[in-house]
């Protein structure tokens, strides 16, 4: 837990709404992201997590809502200066070897070679460097994508389902890497649908269901809101829905 830094607000998300025709994907979602915290966006499949993240990153147009950075409106063209969003279910440059793609992104983000090598070592990607991206297993593909995200240099890192496809040991390793990333000064916003996984890493939580914000805060705060004295995130979520 990074309690010291959590008092400093980094981004303020205000009244975000998004609808696709008659379907309301997000309705007046507001929350704040604090400097260097690990904030978990929790919700079942179809709750609007990805829509919310893509909206914050400026990759899809929103019907309403604003993103404030230190109190000032952060326009869509300027968001990439503050945040990097790693979508779920992508396979960039599938025909190229992993090493070539990582070198490409390192140059793109202006990252030194030793930093790239550190990320490769941290994620255990050495055996895959000579392989084409499309030949990677699900677990390696997830770690390859995480490597791309960790090479980015923006202060806020937004990851959509970062543990999807990882086994328990791999997931614990990635949790450790993400905690180190946070402790080095980066802020993380993670979308996670497995509540137990979220509880392992996140400082605070945003509970989303049906495009609406159910609650926000630490586990203790959410317990209070749910009216329960003990139990994990699963119990809180069930109590609030």
């Amino acid at each position: 837990m990074n309690l010291t830094a959590s008092s400093s607000e980094y981004l303020q998300i205000n009244n975000i709404s998004k609808h696709y025709g008659d379907i309301q994907a997000l309705k007046d979602v507001s929350f704040d992201i604090r400097q260097t915290e690990i904030l978990g966006l929790i919700g079942p499949n179809g709750s609007g997590k990805t829509t919310l993240l893509e909206g914050i990153a400026g990759l899809i147009p929103l019907n309403s809502g604003t993103v404030l950075h230190h109190g000032k409106i952060l326009s869509v063209p300027h968001r990439k200066q503050q945040m990097f969003y790693l979508p779920d279910g992508i396979m960039p440059y599938s025909e190229l070897p992993v090493s070539r793609v990582l070198e490409f992104f390192s140059r793109l983000f202006g990252v030194q070679a030793h930093r790239m090598n550190t990320v490769i070592t941290q994620l255990g990607l050495e055996p895959t460097l000579g392989k084409k991206v499309k030949a990677l297993s699900k677990g390696f593909n997830r770690r390859y994508l995480l490597a791309v995200a960790l090479l980015s240099t923006q202060p806020l890192l937004i990851l959509d389902e970062p543990f999807d496809g990882l086994d328990l040991r791999q997931m614990l390793g990635v949790i450790d890497i993400l905690k180190q990333t946070s402790s080095r000064g980066r802020t993380l916003l993670l979308s996670i649908h497995q509540l137990a996984d979220a509880q392992r890493i996140c400082d605070r939580f945003i509970l989303l269901d049906g495009g609406k914000l159910l609650g926000m805060g630490t586990l203790e705060a959410l317990r209070t809101k749910a009216g329960i004295t003990e139990g994990g995130l699963e119990e809180v979520f069930l109590a609030l829905t």
Binding site: A57, L59, K80, M83, F84, Y85, L86, P87, G89, I90, M91, P92, Y93, S94, F105, L108, F109, G110, V148, S152, Q154
Partner: peptide, 13 residues
């Protein structure tokens, strides 16, 4: 379709 564009547009490009 591969998602590369989403990553590229968030870089300096």
């Amino acid at each position: 379709h591969s998602g590369s564009l989403k990553l590229l547009v968030q870089s300096v490009l």
